[in-house]
Amino acid sequence: MREQSEDTLLEEALGALAGPGRRGAKFTAKRLRKNVGEAYLLVPLPFALALDRVRGALAEAAGGNSPWPLESGPDRAALRVLAGGGFGGLNPVVVTADLNADGPHGTGVHLRAAAKEGLIRQRAGEKTAERIVQILNR
């Protein structure tokens, strides 16, 4: 599950919400457009501290669920978490954070939040990315 694409993770999560209608929900989810929010920011912390801070922000946005690592290295890391967005936090949002050490300046963070959208545009991906940036800027 951890190496799956954004689309596959979102389809599985939407299918899980449907209960007995799982197959129909997954079929429909494949055809929905995706709303994506992206943000780039520089965290003025050394890489290890910035990684802990981003990990905490992702866990907070996901209601306490810990993010899982996609990539790890001495000066580069990628984390992913499944958060809730939209009305009542019921729309699954896949959030990926890529971190790169930027020398003495701090750590560069690229956030990408993606969610499927139906007829009513909730912009769950965009709003979730904004929410995580606000958490990181506290």
Rank of each mutant, 00 (worst) to 15 (best):
F27E: 14
N35A: 06
N137A: 04
P46R: 14
L9V: 07
L42G: 06
G64C: 04
V36W: 01
R31E: 13
P74Y: 03
K30Q: 12
P44R: 12
Q122L: 04
G15K: 08
G85I: 04
I135H: 02
L51P: 01
N137M: 02
R31T: 11
K30G: 15
P74Q: 09
G86K: 03
D98H: 14
A114T: 15
L14A: 09
G15E: 04
F87L: 13
E130V: 12
E12F: 02
T96F: 02
E6H: 08
D98I: 11
L45Q: 13
G125Q: 03
A16S: 09
E6Q: 05
A78E: 11
E71M: 09
E6T: 09
N35Q: 06
L82A: 07
W68E: 06
F27D: 15
A25V: 03
T8R: 11
G73H: 05
K26N: 05
A39T: 15
P74S: 12
A124K: 02
A59K: 08
N137K: 10
L14F: 07
P20N: 08
L17M: 09
L14I: 10
G15V: 06
A115T: 02
E130N: 11
E11L: 11
P67D: 07
V93I: 02
A13H: 04
E71K: 07
K127E: 11
T128A: 03
L49F: 13
R2Q: 14
A39L: 12
I120S: 13
H110F: 10
L58R: 11
I120R: 12
E38Q: 04
E117S: 12
T96H: 02
T8I: 10
A97T: 10
L58T: 14
A16W: 04
R31A: 15
V43I: 10
A39M: 09
A113Q: 00
A83E: 09
